[in-house]
């Protein structure tokens, strides 16, 4: 979707705060913990990202990063029937359940290690492209979640790697587990931007086969 998340190449954001700390406020570290320790049932990584993309652009661009995660955690829980909207607004559960077991730092370090997730899947279909092939990305915008950035729509590049098939993000955001061949495509900056600062610099983007066609 053409949401506020698609920031590549957008202008007038000004200088980068190169000396900013990892967190500005204590609640940001806390929100990071909450997001990693819980998830509404059935939520895929792609549905999580898509949820954030549906925020109003004016809100998305004006609130701190982890505030987006916070409201998205609440929204996904309401959507999945885990929380009600009233509970979110009240800031308390309508009914209390037995407390969850306490996890030690060692338990949590092990949990973090267990978060390594393999997104590759076997597929029957052979890859449509090979390393060295010239490809063009589709120019039309797909509905729903997509990981083809706007700045690289309708652009020509070269396949520099084939990663086998990985779960396709567009389908993951629909709750479906469908694998498609995944490639790294390298684009010349001069082919992406009319005013590229270094035309022979390149941008490499990981793209699934449905986004690609032969030029």
């Amino acid at each position: 979707m053409d949401g506020p998340q698609d920031l590549g190449g957008k202008e007038s954001f000004g200088p980068i705060e190169v000396d900013a700390p990892d967190y500005r406020e204590d609640w940001e570290a806390r929100q990071w913990a909450l997001s990693k320790l819980s998830s509404a049932p059935g939520v895929t990584i792609d549905w999580f990202r898509h949820g954030i993309e549906t925020m109003a652009p004016s809100v998305y661009l004006s609130v701190p990063y982890f505030q987006k995660w916070n409201v998205n955690n609440l929204a996904l829980a309401v959507d999945a029937g885990q929380f009600t909207l009233e509970e979110c607004v009240a800031g308390h559960a309508a009914e209390r359940a037995a407390p969850a077991p306490v996890l030690s730092k060692d338990d949590l370090e092990e949990m973090q290690r267990g978060m390594a997730a393999d997104f590759s899947r076997p597929v029957e279909a052979p890859p449509g492209f090979a390393v060295g092939d010239q490809v063009r990305t589709e120019a039309r915008l797909r509905p729903g979640h997509s990981r083809l950035p706007g700045y690289a729509r309708g652009a020509e590049g070269v396949i520099t790697a084939h990663h086998g098939a990985h779960l396709f993000a567009d389908e993951g955001a629909r709750g479906l587990h469908v694998a498609e061949h995944l490639y790294t495509v390298e684009f010349r900056a001069g082919d992406l931007w009319a005013d590229a600062e270094g035309p022979d610099d390149t941008v490499c983007i990981d793209l699934w086969e449905p986004y690609l066609e032969r030029p």
Binding site: Q31, A33, S38, Q67, G91, P99, V102, S104, L108
Partner: peptide
């Protein structure tokens, strides 16, 4: 935003999904 994060934390703790101490430990 601090109050919003507190709301999420309270809901997760009260519903027995996450323990307060686990959050601090993380």
């Amino acid at each position: 935003p601090a109050l919003r994060v507190k709301a999420l934390e309270s809901l997760l703790v009260e519903k027995g999904l996450v323990a307060q101490e686990s959050i601090d430990n993380w």
